[in-house]
Design a protein around this nucleic acid. Structure first.
Length: 273
DNA sequence: CGACAATGAAAAA
DNA sequence: TTTTCCTTGTCGC
């Protein structure tokens, strides 16, 4: 379920299992990364880093000589386990194994060996990431406030803000009653400040729990006396994938539409601003 | 067993 | 704006 929180969590988990440890065996059973895997095999994993939905694994010390750039895309997945690993299936793009742990990467949109300058170029084309300490929310607002695109499209644009995906965009707009079709240039500085800081808090919690929860304590199923969620995306939400179900707050039907090539969900009654 | 959807984004047109 | 790529699970026949 790869939005930015997932990738930051993966950076932590890769580090916990493979840094400060003997160099892992690196393989690519699926084959597409085989040459690079052979090059890295036996080199220690020394750093891991996330920016938006991009994951970077640094091999070699001290400033990593090699970076593996991973992007999960829509359905890439990572699976950690205790050593010894099971025989790999033929879809495992990248496997790391040491004496205590293994990790398998399947179905990524990107898994490539890159250099430090290439890595820098990726950072340069990404907007600020609410989960990174170096993030500058003003840089994002400069783009938002100049754009005629809708706020819903801008939140999904990784050049504007990195790490927000379809769930966080729908949920943060609901939480602040903002009409997803409002043009970016009509978003006030105060509103952007609210959106940014709420995203920071929500996504930090997402990293901690490894899932997306956006429902305030007073609106949980227990607090509202309604049945718990039925959807299988993993967390408790207001509108995401709840098309035609009733809004938790006002009871009106949640709507859905295509926006920025994805399914948008919103409550037309609660999000009129 | 094929069709299809899914929290993404780049390339092609 | 449309097509393409990556994988897995589910649904319908």
């Amino acid at each position: 379920m790869p939005e930015g929180h997932t990738i930051h969590r993966l950076a932590q988990d890769y580090a916990a299992a493979f840094t400060d440890a003997p160099a892992p065996r690196v393989t690519s059973p699926q084959g597409k990364f085989a040459d690079s895997a052979a090059l890295l095999d036996g080199t220690p994993l020394t750093r891991t880093e996330a920016h938006g939905k991009h994951l970077f694994l640094g091999f070699g010390a001290p400033g990593p000589a090699h970076w593996v750039h991973i992007h999960l895309g829509l359905f890439g997945k990572v699976a950690f386990g205790a050593a010894p690993p099971p025989p790999p299936t033929d879809t495992v793009r990248l496997r790391l194994v040491n004496d205590t742990a293994y990790v398998d990467l399947r179905g990524p949109a990107t898994c490539a060996l890159i250099t430090e300058p290439e890595k820098r170029a990726i950072h340069d084309r990404l907007g600020p990431d609410p989960l990174r300490p170096d993030a500058d929310p003003e840089a994002a607002y400069r783009r938002v406030s100049r754009s005629r695109s809708t706020i819903a499209a801008l939140l999904m644009d990784q050049k504007v803000i990195a790490g927000v995906g379809n769930v966080y965009r729908a949920e943060v707009l609901f939480r602040h009653g903002i009409d997803p079709y409002r043009p970016g240039k009509a978003v006030t500085p105060a509103e952007w400040d609210t959106i940014w800081h709420d995203l920071t808090a929500l996504m930090r919690e997402g990293v901690r729990n490894n899932r997306i929860d956006t429902v305030r304590p007073e609106h949980t199923p227990e607090a509202m006396g309604r049945p718990p969620r039925v959807d299988d995306h993993g967390g408790e939400v207001y509108v995401y994938r709840r098309a035609s179900l009733s809004c938790h707050l006002c009871g009106d039907a949640i709507r859905t539409a295509d926006l920025a090539a994805r399914n948008l969900f919103w409550c037309p009654t609660c999000q009129k601003n």
